[in-house]
Design a protein around this nucleic acid. Structure first.
Lengths: 160, 160
DNA sequence: TTATGTGCAAACTGTTTGCGCGAAG
DNA sequence: CTTCGCGCAAACAGTTTGCACATAA
């Protein structure tokens, strides 16, 4: 019998799971946080703070921009949510899914698409940096930039 | 007899060298561009656009912010200057030094410091990405994030 | 009851844009 | 002379902050 998607705490769903971890941290359990977590959980992907604002205020009108930024901040501080810098303006957020392998993010310069890559993608680089200059690389904190396959195909033939 | 710093076009200095390449591109040769190139050349490092604004307007008062952003843009388009996204707000610019090996940038989350790493640091990652999802990685377009040796030392003992 | 989160308005950083004048080629 | 760059003001995106009030614990 394989565990399937049975991980984290007690099969309660990612939101309740996250809420539980928040409470364990001594954090307050507010409607705003619940909503933000729900948005992140249902998005199943990477959202910019502004996207979270849009979706969260749709679920709960009156919820303020600033609150959401602060909420995302505190959720990150509690390791319930992680953020990725993309190089293009917006920081992306997503729920930490226990049981899901952490991954590295890759972003296309042209279409802005975000792609997931295996978490060990930067293992070699990490070790080299550590050894060479004592730098501790945080592989999933930055999205790597480049051009995705689809965009490359679009430009096929044009050298530049 | 070794070439020493004798590279690029005719030992004219990086600025004139860049200006020559600009002209070759059919680009106009304006005071603003000259000044921006001088700032970048003398900085010998990575400058945020705002830093360039400060230094350039010091050299030539009246030079406008917007002009500098546009200038940096066009210099990048002409491959005379390159930019790096750091994840923290500001994009960094530096002159393309012919003869100098291109390098990857690494940035410390805590102190914001920028460090150079060998250009082949991401070779493995680049090949894996290409093979796996056809993604063409641009290794020097993003700064990798993490914690530098100095900042790690500062926190020595504190687990978090 | 009390520390902590929230709503609101406003500021702030980094960057872009439309417009008309001016200067490089 | 014509095209391209420049100065200016203004807007823009993304995010942060100070303050007073509300509320989870």
């Amino acid at each position: 019998m394989r565990a399937g998607r049975n991980h984290g705490s007690a099969e309660a769903g990612p939101v309740d799971d996250a809420l539980a971890r928040l409470r364990a941290r001594g954090q307050r359990l507010t409607p705003a946080r619940r909503v933000v977590l729900e948005v992140l959980a249902s998005a199943k992907g990477h959202l910019a703070a502004e996207d979270v604002v849009t979706r969260a205020t749709a679920l709960q009108p009156g919820l303020h921009r600033a609150t959401i930024y602060r909420t995302l901040d505190s959720l990150c501080a509690s390791d319930v949510v992680v953020h990725v810098h993309t190089g293009h303006g917006a920081t992306l957020y997503h729920l930490v899914d226990h049981g899901e392998a952490p991954h590295v993010h890759v972003s296309c310069d042209r279409c802005g698409g975000i792609f997931d890559a295996p978490s060990d993608l930067l293992d070699v680089a990490r070790e080299r940096l550590e050894r060479a200059i004592g730098f501790r690389l945080e592989p999933s904190h930055t999205a790597l930039l480049g051009t995705c396959a689809a965009c490359l195909a679009t430009t096929k033939g044009a050298s530049r």
